[in-house]
Amino acid sequence: MNDIARMLRRLGGGVIDAVWRLGYASRFIAMVLAASGMAFRRFSLTMRELYFAGVLSLVIISVSGLFVGMVLALQGFETLQNFGAAEAVGVLVATSLVKELGPVVAGLLFASRAGSAMTAEIGLMKTTEQLSAMEMMAVNPLARVVAPRFWAGVISMPLLAAIFSVMGVFGGWLVAVKLLGVDNGTFWSQMQAQIDFRLGIVNGIIKSFVFGAAITAIAVYEGYDAPPTAEGVASATTRTVVESALAVLALDFVLTVFMFRGTGL
């Protein structure tokens, strides 16, 4: 009897903790949004974060995009050739990149490249009591530190995803047209005939925008919430990457269901 009561108590405690954390995180994000004024009024703060989150991610994003596109073209060509439709390799590469792989893989890379850095930076600022010092000087750390990082992530993610897709299409073109000898004109014309602007490209941009917001929200929250110890910052950084990866993949499914359901595409 006692054992059952203890198990129930543990279950109840776990649920209350989870709900409390969810509420705390939502309230934190709401406060960041409310304190965002400074991120735009003093745009140089956001500019600096755009440099760290966006510009420094450019190399890894473009190189990964190039290779993903090249591999897609190679693999797609092998299979499509069996059906005598090797020209459709351009459609295959572009569709999968623009609708899915661009936003998702760019999101995963962005989470590990920029998200983890944000968490570590904010966590270390908290550990070394820089955030408390700001509060002492009547500077709101949410407005001065957190909001610029959040908005920099939201702005740079769609741009990075678009660059990823373009590099992927370029990589696919290199392999398909230059290496495997698919006709250049058919490659582009099939792609243009099959990809719908609103269904394909606009939805891809919406996806990357949502992923950017989710990843940076997780990153700044985990950094701000990290226990002020070396171990705490380390585990917060790990949690950022794991949680953002899960969030990106789960959100991708949900968004895809809403965007492409019942359109026959």
Binding site: V166, I195, F197, G200, I201
Partner: peptide, 8 residues
């Protein structure tokens, strides 16, 4: 993407 891939 809009012009060359999506043919806007």
């Amino acid at each position: 993407l809009s012009l060359k891939v999506g043919n806007l």
